[in-house]
Design a protein around this nucleic acid. Structure first.
Lengths: 205, 205, 205, 205
DNA sequence: TATGAATGAGGGTTCATTCAT
DNA sequence: TATGAATGAACCCTCATTCAT
């Protein structure tokens, strides 16, 4: 009544990666636990040994993706390079992250709403964790705002509305994970360079 | 899009508007026929007198939104203004459309995937209609590409990769319908101006 | 994709009766919606047109059973007969109700705990309804307490601890629906008479 | 039932006690192996080293409870006291057992149905064991019948229908384990006395 | 047109149970 | 003995869709 799998057991990381992939392809609502499980050769029921429920899995996927990008952005922020150089590098690693791992990016674009829909429900711990995620998301966006703000103050960038500019930039980035195809005309690095050029140019006086 | 029939019964337009609204709030998968029906004081069953099925309804919503924007973009394209002026105005009406009618915009951002997921299924007529929609979507994106391309050729814009720049611009626009709040700090017109500034600046030599 | 049933549609009453029957046989947890549906030639899904969920159905069953008994008890209470006569008649109709409809009685015995288990969950309306049910249950028990109390005060009954005596009596009654078999040695009327004798005797000086 | 092994590992007794407790609180179907395991700091899987399956565990709980009561009832039966005194004492120890160990009592009230539901299934050994349990249950009820019968024959009790009177008495008793609260107005001894009074009175001429 | 009732399909989730470690 | 991981089975419930009225 309980068969053993041929290979060894999967870990949460494997599941997260698979889930991100499926989620990106199908979207949260259209993705079934079975779909995700199949991707790692498990039964849907088995997923519940690793994640409390579908919401928790989604949240874990988003968290992982967000933390990955943050972990790559922060060192750039902490460097003593000039603002324009910092922004250029940030856009670079961000786009590269997105193209290397479309799953994470697309999940973030599309599924935040699903996450918000589940707001209010769940245990206190779940609510807390969700709040923390949104706080991290704001922190992430703030990294961009900070460097833009700093550049404006240092007269390196022209005087733009920082929140709007950040949203503009992030929207453009997010969309990459929707249209990017690994076998397309341009690779991630090339796209990153172009987009960095675009936004740096947009900030010139 | 604003004609008012004499009688009081709901028509397809009413349903489309309501559907777009609900779809934006909840997303395609999370939106039930009952939800949409409730918005126009009908039962789910009654919706089937107006639309063949949920997919057809979604498609109709997307079509309406897309055609609205196209209908506002084409006159600008056909004018004899300079490329930069054309692009500025296009961005303007696009953003305004999005902020005036978040429903349509968000539907376009989020639900294209759902539509693609249903690809291959359905009658020949449905498949044809879906194909036509995607063709229109490409046409829409092409409007942007054309004006950018023309500007580049006329040395009014710097030499950018046109497809990538168009995607960048569209990504930024689409994202507006996600974060825009009618009671926010800035209205649609202000946002439109700022984003136009950004992208026009980005195209300067 | 949606077949019609051969016979005409069922109403809530039919479902309640069927549900009470199945619930009694299997217990709440062991009873599936499918089981109940099958009893009225419906699909499980169809039940949800009549009751919001399994809990609501259970509650409706219990309510119906309780109200039935209360409706038979109250006229006796309101009569101007002597306490001992009143109590005798109450025991009579109660036992008869139980043997005529073991389902309801057993459900009441066994499933109150299930109902309590679901306490706190659900919408405010559900909680309210549940509270009201428990209030009615208390009212029901109070009918017995009142007549006993009155009898004690009028020196018709010996001085017993009223709450304990009522519990004793109710426990004996409830258990009837567990062991009573329609084709047993004695019918409901006979059992009722014997139990009335027992408890009236127990109250003599 | 209260021996304590030197080591600290759990033994079947510990599990039985814990299981009885959880079963009483939640009922058989609503109680999970995990629930029971948690009560003794084990995992569900570990329980299977002690009991073949959930049914076996339930049966063991019921057996233990039943045997406990029987073991306390038999000495009274074997004494040469008068019938009325014997019955009084039997009611006393029975109620006390119930209030001291609600778990066992409630399990007996509520879970017999679950046990019967599993009838027919299982190995021959299991069926045998189940049959034996039911035989013991009948034996237990017979203890009451015997003393009542004897009393009637000796003209100590009035002529009642013995089976019905026994059911009446047992129903009242079983119900105690449902409503008894350790911190209630009366303790087990007081309740026992009152109920003994009631039933002895009911048997008077 | 509108709808109440019904249903097949399926999704999330739970749970008893197994087995390798 | 103990357990983590896994699973088949089943359950509750939802939903798009149909059809008689």
């Amino acid at each position: 009544m309980a068969r053993k799998p041929a290979d060894q057991s999967v870990n949460q990381q494997d599941i997260l990666i698979a889930a991100a992939d499926v989620l990106q392809r199908n979207g949260y609502e259209a993705t079934t636990m079975k779909d995700i499980a199949a991707e790692v050769n498990l039964t849907a029921a088995s997923l519940y040994h690793h994640f409390k429920n579908k919401d928790a899995l989604l949240l874990a996927v988003l968290e992982a993706g967000l933390e990955l990008v943050i972990s790559r952005l922060e060192p750039i922020m902490r460097s003593d390079k000039s603002c324009d150089q910092q922004l250029r590098e940030m856009i670079g690693v961000h786009i590269i992250s997105l193209t290397e791992n479309t799953a994470v990016g697309a999940a973030m674009v599309f599924e935040i709403r699903s996450l918000m829909a589940s707001n209010g429900s769940g245990s206190a711990a779940e609510v807390t964790r969700r709040k923390k995620f949104f706080a991290r998301r704001d922190y992430f966006e703030n990294l961009y705002r900070q460097v833009i703000q700093k550049g404006v103050e240092q007269r390196i960038f022209r005087a733009v509305d920082v929140p709007i500019f950040a949203k503009t930039l992030l929207g453009a980035h997010n969309w990459v994970s929707v249209w990017y195809k690994p076998d397309g005309r341009l690779n991630g690095q090339q796209i990153a360079t172009m987009m960095a050029d675009t936004f740096l140019q947009a900030l010139k006086f």
